[in-house]
Design a protein around this nucleic acid. Structure first.
Lengths: 125, 125
DNA sequence: GCGACGCATTGACAGTCGTCGATATATACG
DNA sequence: CGTATATATCGACGACTGTCAATGCGTCGC
């Protein structure tokens, strides 16, 4: 989703040329965790998507698109767009019942997301 | 930071025209929390920034830019750019010591961030 | 002073994102 | 069938993001 061009390197260099300007051990960064986490954060980084997720979780079940549409400050194609992003990420899924489409969260997918995010955020201390 | 054009409305409409296609109570969404949280997530949604934060937190103190520069897969102006974003958000700050600039996290700012993110993410259950 | 160095800023570029009108698709109802 | 309704997709637009070379700015050592 982002324009990530390169990967994050694991070590802080020991700056053999000249003395190091920071003392202390060289920090290690879990590369793959960062990459996956940032992808999660990208999806969370929009209020409409957050609202969709909040509504779906609140209802604890299927929610009709038309209800979402009415609750959000964007037009129908835009709602559909954000629903697609969440669906393509696997976070939510949909069933059609007649004319209506009902969306719901997939807890089996969102739970690992929650774990990844929690791990990164708790690391900020 | 995002292209938010409008605000998130608080209620799911009761669809007076026609019957509602979803039953259940109308969910309420904490608008301001969503807005602030999505701003937090935007800042977290890049692996370089995540890596910077991880390194700063790990070191538990000031880290020279040149160390960060060596640890990240982007050139110096790009590092500076991401440092600026984090600094402008108040998450980190800097002291100059001679030629070098040392960055460090501001726990007083990051702690509320952690709380907001935690609140949103724990809400995903 | 001068040159070297570390970092910040600028400016430009390509790529991506969010939005919405228009349109397509699909279902339901006469 | 035709029409209405719900959702998805398309296409275009403007705005923003990430990146880096070039340049500026401040500090150090000489």
């Amino acid at each position: 989703m982002t324009k990530r061009t390169a990967r994050v390197i694991v070590e802080v260099p020991d700056r053999t040329r000249g003395e190091r300007c920071s003392p202390g051990p060289r920090p290690l960064v879990d590369l793959d965790a960062l990459e996956r986490a940032s992808a999660d954060f990208e999806l969370l980084a929009h209020p409409v998507r957050l609202a969709i997720l909040a509504i779906l979780v609140r209802r604890g079940g299927e929610v009709c698109v038309c209800d979402l549409e009415g609750a959000l400050p964007v037009k129908q194609p835009t709602v559909s767009h954000h629903l697609r992003l969440l669906r393509e990420a696997g976070w939510i899924d949909t069933v059609r019942k007649g004319v209506w489409a009902y969306y719901f969260v997939r807890p089996d997918v969102v739970a690992p997301v929650r774990d990844r995010v929690r791990r990164v955020v708790e690391g900020l201390r």
